[in-house]
Write a protein that binds this DNA or RNA. Structure first.
Lengths: 205, 205, 205, 205
DNA sequence: AATGAATGAGTCTTCATTCAT
DNA sequence: TATGAATGAAGACTCATTCAT
């Protein structure tokens, strides 16, 4: 009674479109700049009706965040699944990351765009969700064969920072996402200079 | 600079504190989250009084942005002035950039934090101001001796992206800004792997 | 009682719990402060379902009021049934009144707590219901052997006012209801001063 | 500058009418039933404008409450000032109380009508304000020469309860307030029965 | 007999902005 | 220069009620 498969499906009928609309608008305009009316209009309801499905604007954001983490995480996990070379894994992961936030998922985009501190009431929840995902990069970078003196924390921050910042400048039509990911990882892995030799590659201490 | 010297001076008397307050709050909370009342209160005036000095909230932001560009640009220009080695120039520039947006100037911080699209009416002005500054990195990176196939545009975007993103995670007490700048540039310049492979590059300490 | 016994019974099946819940919440929080959702939730249904049983929130209140009058009236009638002394009757009535609105019946409590004017559409109905009950006190006080110049109307208003106001301050754990009723009636019946004599008990006219 | 006498006066120009309107409507309809729009309309402004003067609806209520306590307290204090007989003091106090809440001050009426628990955020403040006033009755009743076994707490509760409940039934045109106060106190002070019984008390006119 | 879904009118509140003084 | 006062448009949210199923 109320949990027939059919009913259950109809029950969440409008939740999905609602989340999609929210994700789309949060991703495009940010949290504050998006109004409940915007979202409601996008799915053809009135602002008040949204509250039948979600208790608050924050609850909507949280749901989007959760789905965002779920999607980008599984996308990333898949991308490294068959791979054993640590650098190739990182390349794949970076590509998955970029593809998801640039092309494929408004949900994931929201996760990058909306900073937890902007929504104090659920700040901690958002932070946890983010860490859940970002920790994967900790592991990925730990697995890299690096010189001892390399600060892996800064390395991760650099790669993720550069990646996340793509949201600011990337437009459909920029370089293919695949190339960007490749470039970002290889900029790190390889030396950038022509191998014209000693004085370049030697590090003066 | 002229007319009633006295009057003129008194006129701009409150502009500076007003800009300082605006810069400080925009940098800390973002544009939308900062109210005219916040800014007015910080300098001990009432909201309406702000409009004697600035035509609108947007005008305030624009003024802050301009000052931000001025400051970070001159800081960067100084930092590379005496230097001739292109990598060292980039290192210095990056350090200047980071120091300015992390430690030294709310004005510059605003420039990084507040995205032009958030204020459609002056979006283009803001974009121009930003480019004005970021172009310096185009030049800096053009001067680098790199292998031919390196995409200098992506390289710039990676370095600046990673740098700007520090705003998200950097807290007083993280690694010294100097080290972060060094690391970011060297991660790019040098190979990251232990020198197990001759064909890559030798690294000696 | 009649027709499809089974169906009929099942029909009113949910009416009782619904009324109970309404009474409980109206009594505890007042009319405006109680939402249809509160009531529905309390009996495990959805807000819309309430309207199958009651035409409106007002109708619910009216039903509660009616039941409230029924209960407190019969409770009071019982309490004075065997008694012939008019003062004892009043004492019993007051105790019955207090016990009902303080301890025993949310329905009766509602009658005291929710003022007719708060629900203009049914204001008159509510007023009639109340009078129906309060008239009993008119009779009770008429039966009292009092000096001629005593304003029996004010006397009733004082006793009932003091009694009803107990809702404001009474908490389980205050004096026993029985004692309160006794005290209220005896404060009226007896002189309050030590019988130190004439000048006290003489009323200067 | 801004604190000229003239300016200062003009400053609080609209606060008084606003408070008056709020007091009037809270007294007439209760807190929840009164909207900010009601109050604003009454003084000829728009709802938003109210917030220039008061931070919230609750703040408005609190201000009204405070003024209510101030007024009824000083009214009461005056009424007992010249008097030394404890019963006459109580009579005067009761009359002052009734006159204030029935005839003279919407502010005081609010204090009686709006229960602290209806506004959880400022519940404690309201409770303190009320006690501040009601404590005067504790003192007044403590001063009464009563038989030892009289529960002075219940006595106060009865008198105040009956008095406050007048708000429910009193209409201009009922008995004069003065008579009501007299009656309430004398119902308590004197025995109500004809002097047929020696053992009770003699009452002579 | 009840539910899922929605409505629409209304609530308090916020805030950039205006303007007479 | 600045203020007191107000505006008006918008924002998030609430809730009694409706109605097809």
């Amino acid at each position: 009674m109320g949990t027939h498969a059919g009913t259950a499906q109809r029950t969440n009928n409008r939740v999905k479109p609602l989340l999609d609309a929210a994700a789309s608008q949060f991703a495009a305009k940010g949290y504050r700049e998006t109004t409940i009316r915007d979202i409601a209009t996008a799915v053809g309801m009135l602002p008040g009706s949204v509250y039948y499905h979600f208790a608050s604007k924050q609850a909507l954001l949280l749901a989007v965040y959760e789905e965002g983490v779920r999607r980008i995480s599984s996308r990333l996990d898949e991308s490294v699944a068959g791979e054993s070379d640590p650098w190739q894994k990182l390349r794949n992961a970076t590509e998955a990351h970029l593809e998801t936030i640039l092309d494929q998922s408004d949900y994931a985009r929201v996760m990058i765009r909306v900073m937890p501190e902007q929504v104090p009431d659920i700040e901690l929840d958002l932070i946890h969700l983010r860490s859940d995902y970002e920790d994967r990069f900790v592991a990925l970078i730990d697995a890299l064969p690096l010189q001892e003196d390399v600060d892996r924390g800064l390395l991760r921050l650099m790669l993720l920072g550069a990646s996340n910042w793509t949201q600011i400048w990337y437009r459909a039509g920029s370089a293919p996402v695949h190339d960007i990911a490749q470039a970002f990882v290889d900029f790190l892995r390889l030396p950038l200079m022509p191998d014209t030799a000693d004085e370049v590659t030697v590090r003066e201490c």
